[in-house]
């Protein structure tokens, strides 16, 4: 299938992602930050679709926007926000933050300018019909051991969360 107006959609989704990302770090209320982060994550799922990665886009929506962000909102509602709202939300590290961001940006720009030759202009289309199938075959084939370790990691995370969040074991 031929892609439609990819440039417009790229800039639209990129603007949504950036607006969400900037709102996350500028809002004072953590609930607003969480909602902005959800918008950024959903727009990023759209970008994954544009990059012919439907499986990753689905996992992004289900796991990030549906799982992790719900967890965040639950924790925000568990803690007393009225009291922490009155505290100062930003610390006095503006200078350090700007310096770090500038250094990081300079690094990225240097790499981008010097390594322009290794980034070809056109992205060739890959087959998206069999994307999920091939990822599944690779996960249960070459990456079997990694997959099992990931499941073990999740088990450890579940047990650790229960142990730490419970008042009395």
């Amino acid at each position: 299938m031929q892609p439609v107006a990819t440039t417009f959609f790229f800039y639209f989704l990129a603007a949504l992602t950036l607006a969400g990302g900037v709102l996350v770090i500028t809002r004072k209320n953590p609930v607003h930050s969480a909602l902005a982060l959800i918008i950024a994550l959903l727009a990023q799922a759209g970008l994954y679709l544009m990059l012919y990665a439907p499986f990753v886009a689905g996992v992004q929506i289900i796991l990030y926007a549906g799982g992790i962000m719900v967890l965040f909102l639950f924790v925000i509602m568990l803690v007393n926000l009225e009291r922490s709202q009155r505290e100062e939300q930003f610390n006095k590290q503006w200078l350090l933050g700007i310096i770090a961001a500038t250094a990081l940006g300079a690094l990225f720009i240097t790499i981008f300018v010097r390594g322009r030759a290794i980034f070809p202009v056109h992205i060739a289309a890959v087959a998206e019909e069999s994307n999920t199938q091939e990822i599944g075959l690779m996960l249960y084939g070459n990456y079997m051991f990694t997959f099992e370790i990931a499941s073990l990691l999740l088990l450890v995370a579940i047990i650790g969360a229960v142990v730490m969040a419970k008042k009395r074991i």
């Binding site: 770090i25 610390n91 590290q93 700007i98 990081l104």
Partner: peptide, 9 residues
């Protein structure tokens, strides 16, 4: 990175 450095919450 900026959010990590400047936020307190």
């Amino acid at each position: 990175v900026i959010g990590f450095l400047i936020k307190r919450n």
